[in-house]
Design a protein around this nucleic acid. Sequence first.
DNA 1: CGTCTTTGACCTGCGC
DNA 2: GCGCAGGTCAAAGACG
Length: 308
Amino acid sequence: MSDEPRDLYNNCHNPYQYGNLGYDPSSYMSFTDCLRGPTVDYESLARAFGLSPDSSDLISLPTGNPTSVFDARERGGPTSECNNDPAAPNSTISSSYTEAGAEEDSCKSKPRESQTREESERSTKQSKLKKKAEKKQPRFAFMTKSEVDHLEDGYRWRKYGQKAVKNSSYPRSYYRCTTQKCTVKKRVERSFQDPSIVVTTYEGQHNHPIPSTIRGNSAAVRFTSSSMLNPSSEAAALGPSFAHDSLLNQINHSLCHNQGGGTGGSGGTGYIYPEGATSHQQQHQQQYSDYGIYEDMVHSMYYKMQEL
DNA sequence: CGTCTTTGACCTGCGC
DNA sequence: GCGCAGGTCAAAGACG
């Protein structure tokens, strides 16, 4: 280790730096590729972020935070080949149906009227269970330093809501994938700590290929972020595959951007905060505490960089 | 005309 | 039970 740590900030703006960070540009899967897959492969996602498949380097992180990509997977319900294909409901949903089915037997001998009422109650209960199961969609969030809120990721989204967020002067936008039967949603909001950072949270997995066109443009991922690091010469020289991975770059960039700051939680969770972050840290921590995947990716990348 | 955004109302979960 | 905050719905309007 001859490199001075202070060089990291500058180095991380260099796309070639992936090698030093433990990413093999020729073998890692892009973040967007992961998002696009008909089934989100969290192991691939983990690989994309330079995490070892056995998550050992996550567990060994000196953060005191036991969560990991794989923990999050368990919390998120859908397991290994988690997908939204209706033909292959995940275990969480199917178990809900089983529960409802079991109740059916118990009311066979009841009077018709009460049976009808119970049927409606049961359907209500079923829909509640279904909704509950749907809420257990895998989620992952990431931060992007960008002037625009909604970054193109190759999919088509329809905005279905916007809400003011407590403790933030910036609203949160809700988007849904416009493809039929695709239940993927995403939330976009600005960090109240650093308004230049956009926090995007994906929920669920696309069960369809990426749309062929986006408003007349190629479906190639277009990031309009003004902060896409080195979008010119060097990146261009790397060709489309690099542009494909620009999101990863942005994550990396955000990481580098924050590196001058400390980690939040006083030796607890190790969440990365900008320099001077204060009492809002806890709120922030809580706000993203269920984004285990995101946090752990950041942890991992952060510590990998420190190891250089 | 189809698609998308806006926005107020409504629903739901959760803490007190 | 109540109030709050987050999430969703759906009608209306904008836009290409």
